[in-house]
Write a protein that binds this DNA or RNA. Structure first.
Lengths: 149, 149
DNA sequence: TTACCTGCAAATTGTTTGCAGCCAC
DNA sequence: GTGGCTGCAAACAATTTGCAGGTAA
């Protein structure tokens, strides 16, 4: 699926939620689509949107990502560095993907395969806890940094 | 192991790291030991320490928990609510325990059993990523809230 | 004495809110 | 014209920092 198809889908999600896809919101969504391998903070999104639409305000970006989180277009995640980051949901993903955070270089790699199906079953039966989503981040050293050392 | 034995162990960890266990630090550690089932923020720790040692400053609490994190006495974790929380490492635990966050009542339950051994092996072999720790939180509905509904 | 540690207040940073104006329907 | 949306500035909240004074080895 290409960018414009993804954008059309998100436009529909907004409409279904009672929101309009204004130019500012469209610019913000496009930045997210173009940087879907990154994990941008609101401030970083703002900087990128500003390059194409210099008149946008930071508060609008915050309001937009909050709305996108509510609509489950993006997932909000924090890697313990004090800023919230926003990550596009993968196409058709039932659950949030996992992350590999390198403690050496700070890179964040994504793991789309859901490795927690068995673990979730265990949690549901052992704790009677109904799982709706998860956050899983591994801390360690990435392949590249291992080779450097 | 009782509280004073745990305290003695932590005192040693501080000394090994080149720090002293000052009265303020001791009060802070005691609050953490007495509330090891909670997930206290710096502000909450400060309030509890203040009850016994009213002269302590908030900045000292921040500096102490930062030091304890560095020494791996506690783990710092954020549940996407904008505050950092501090969780005592379990005795002998190689990895950080898991959490069940209830989206209805906000309760946080701990899962000490390490459910990720297999998953970590997969990550190590599939991505050549050397895992040193992890953060796993399930979002969902706890047993009690399911019964209420 | 010297280096570490503390409390306080000020500064910083990330995020939210109030509000007046604007725009699409 | 009404309601949603925006930018700006101010407010807020969590955390960090500068600094003068205190304290233990």
């Amino acid at each position: 699926m290409d960018t414009s198809a993804k954008l059309a889908k998100i436009r529909k999600q907004l409409h279904d939620g009672g929101y309009k896809l204004t130019p500012q919101r469209e610019s913000t969504v496009l930045v997210l689509l173009e940087n879907d391998k990154d994990h941008l903070s609101a401030e970083e999104i703002y900087m990128l949107v500003k390059q194409k639409s210099p008149e946008i305000g930071l508060a609008t970006v915050y309001r937009t990502v909050e709305m996108l989180t509510e609509l489950k277009v993006v997932d909000k995640i924090s890697f313990n560095d004090g800023v919230a980051r926003y990550d596009l949901r993968k196409e058709g993903a039932k659950h949030f993907h996992h992350h590999l955070l390198c403690l050496e270089c700070g890179s964040i790699q994504e793991v789309e395969e859901d490795l927690l199906l068995e673990v979730e079953k265990t949690v549901e039966s052992q704790f009677k806890f109904k799982v709706s989503d998860h956050r899983l981040t591994f801390h360690g050293v990435c392949k590249e940094c291992q080779n450097k050392a």
